[in-house]
Design a protein around this nucleic acid. Structure first.
Lengths: 190, 190
DNA sequence: ACATAAATGTACAGATCGGTAACGAAAATC
DNA sequence: GATTTTCGTTACCGATCTGTACATTTATGT
């Protein structure tokens, strides 16, 4: 199987797991929805967990790249980009087929901290925080860690709200809060 | 079965589902862990979903009562209580056996918005926001909805962080952000 | 065109899933 | 103390689960 074909399989499997959940999606369903026979799938992935891990890794790469790209389009300066985070999230929430955060779901279904899927999902979140921190550093904030954590909390809260709460445009609401927070935050002394 | 016995069964089932997940916990496991035979369980709950729904409802009642109680202990005034939210969350995160938010997990596993478990979980979140809003109103903020949403976002973000992110004491960090936000927020004009 | 590799559908193994039937024991009710 | 309800145990049902075997067909590379 060509690498591109394998990617395509993983991407289609991602859709199945994303929509129906990991444990709720049987391999027969995955085979049907991806159009790849179960035999062929198991030729390339030893177990279902291996496939799920590949799904998580693909999503990690693609989603982070997409998110960074959108943030850098919405905002020019580092400080603008800290707020553009929420514009990008708003765009994400508005996409048809938005069903929440795959990584939060993955950790909800694979609770064992030793499970690779759990760890990979946590690693994804760490990268998000690290990116926000780099923006906060570039923007010259005195406490970039606190800034990054706050932006991240607000963004994750908005994600949860987008799935569970009857809040209109949670990303916009979180953006307002973030803007006020940034306006009050101290800059690094020269 | 006495109501108290039934409650006890639901409470023990809650522990099973909380620790292992809903789909990953078979009814045989539930029977074993609760000490109630599968037959007896099915005498009182028509299906597994019915039991799960009872679990969600029990958790909703108990957890909200606990959270409100802790918040009102940590804070005296409404404004203090908006920050005490994070003290209560910190206490929750520190409890042994903390495994994240059951309602977030429930929505992750029951994605269909028409599913009662999904709806009940969302209703729980709505009650949380409503409580924060009542505090914001009592504290005299000009825009209690925005205040409530921000507190809620930060709290939910802290919960996600407590499970997934390598952030030390996320509740304390969220509290700092919330305090700054409240300090800048406008009061209602008399 | 041919040899090789890989995909397919079907069928299956073994385990587990949600849920039930049957029956004796226990216990609450009258 | 007799009766009725509820309980646990055990075994089971059909469906579905992950994962595999196998023979056939389809791509692929030279």
């Amino acid at each position: 199987m060509r690498p591109s074909k394998k990617d395509e399989l993983v991407r289609k499997a991602l859709n199945v797991f994303y929509r129906h959940g990991f444990h709720a999606s049987g391999m027969d369903l995955v085979a049907k929805e991806t159009g790849v026979s179960k035999t062929a799938i198991y030729n390339h992935f030893r177990t279902k967990d291996d496939l799920i891990l590949a799904v998580i890794k693909l999503r990690d790469e693609e989603f982070r790249a997409w998110m960074v790209s959108r943030i850098e389009t919405y905002g020019e300066t580092p400080e603008e980009r800290l707020l553009a985070v929420f514009d990008a999230h708003a765009e994400w929430f508005a996409q048809k087929g938005f069903f929440g955060c795959l990584f939060i779901k993955a950790c909800a279904e694979f609770q064992d901290p030793a499970h690779p899927v759990h760890q990979q999902s946590c690693a994804h979140q760490a990268q998000g925080i690290a990116y926000y921190r780099s923006l906060a550093v570039a923007a010259g904030f005195a406490d970039p860690d606190e800034i990054a954590r706050t932006i991240w909390f607000l963004a994750q809260g908005a994600i949860v709200a987008a799935v569970m709460a009857a809040i209109d445009n949670p990303a916009a609401s979180a953006r307002v809060a973030a803007a006020k927070m940034l306006a009050c935050a101290e800059r690094r002394s020269v």
